[in-house]
Design a protein around this nucleic acid. Structure first.
Lengths: 195, 195
DNA sequence: CACGTAATAGAATATATATTCTTTTATGGT
DNA sequence: ACCATAAAAGAATATATATTCTATTACGTG
């Protein structure tokens, strides 16, 4: 079987996510990631083909973790109030998985994906497409009369919670009190003009 | 007088801002900036001491452009409705000065400032402090009963418009229709719980 | 119309860091 | 106990790019 590994592939991924969250993807050098994971530089290349591939995996992993909960909630929403619940997944995600949230919310996607292998880029594109489709479907379902429903839904369920949480990240965690503020703001965004 | 310059220092700064907005600060190499500005690499170093200093100046310049309008509007606000007007400066800024907005909204501050000369860092810190003071003053003035007024004001006037605009940046410009959505959301954020 | 100056121009150098290579080490199976 | 294997370990190399250096050029001035 050979010598046992000190860490799993997932440990390495999480270490890379922490470093990328702390200092930004550009500063997440292989040396820094290896140090965070507690393995020598050379060992990193036993796990992953390149730094770009590892960073891209970080982004996809973080996005998948967020998307899982979000898609599920939004698809089931039968009313605007239920859609507002989906907006609250962002502050919760930021509390539960700080590194992933910082990575998704405080850096640009391209900094993780530009040099990625084609296959990873495709996974990332698929995720983005799914998100846009979910938003569009929800808009069609819950805001059928609004010609700009898609934009409104995106702003209400993604933009507003994103911005509200961003006020606190990356240093702190969003306090519990802002969830009510986010819910009120998202609801107002969905209803304004409809009144 | 010596040979005349092809470009002004401000031309160089704007070129750097465009490159940083387009590809992110990490990818804004001196070569790329020089090419964008239309001057050879060596000439860049006649204007600025280092790449880090130039990028840091970009951030400060962009922040100053935004802050000028924002401070002015917020200081004068005598009511919550007037404060909501300050939230609308963000989408307007994104339309009028796309590069500066992308730079401020889609990258992390530290990527521009971490290696900056001390003096530039201080200017940036002063700007941040001023922003926080303005928010805190407005909260004390317009939300005197709310113990979390500062956070609420920050989320309503910075976070919400920031997130709403971010849905469209960096590729596009925020459409005019979202201003009403932002205003409704910001107002709801300021009033929720007070009702 | 030379002369001094300040900028252009791009080649040369230094540095940081991603990647590769070689050696060493720890485990499971025989 | 010995062997094959897979990973650790870190030194060596390659590459990208920030910075410095050495000319060259265009303008105003005496």
């Amino acid at each position: 079987m050979g010598r046992p590994a000190h860490i799993t592939d997932e440990d390495l991924l999480n270490a890379a996510m922490r470093v990328a969250a702390r200092h930004g993807p550009a500063r997440a050098s292989v040396a820094a990631i290896a140090k965070e994971a507690g393995v020598p530089v050379g060992s990193v290349y036993h796990r992953v083909p390149s730094r770009s591939a590892l960073l891209a995996d970080c982004w996809v992993k973080a996005a998948e973790r967020f998307a899982a909960g979000f898609f599920n909630r939004l698809e089931q929403a039968k009313s605007l109030d239920e859609a507002v619940e989906a907006a609250l997944l962002t502050p919760r995600f930021a509390r539960e998985d700080h590194a992933a949230a910082v990575l998704l919310l405080a850096s640009r996607r391209e900094d993780f994906l530009d040099e990625a292998p084609e296959e990873t880029k495709n996974r990332a594109s698929a995720l983005t497409r799914d998100l846009q489709k979910n938003i569009a479907d929800a808009a069609k379902r819950l805001l059928p009369a609004d010609p700009k429903g898609r934009e409104r839904m995106a702003v209400a369920l993604i933009g507003i919670p994103y911005g509200a949480v961003r006020v606190f990240l990356p240093q702190a965690v969003p306090p519990a009190e802002i969830d009510a503020v986010i819910a009120a703001a998202a609801r107002a965004a969905l209803l304004s003009g409809t009144a």
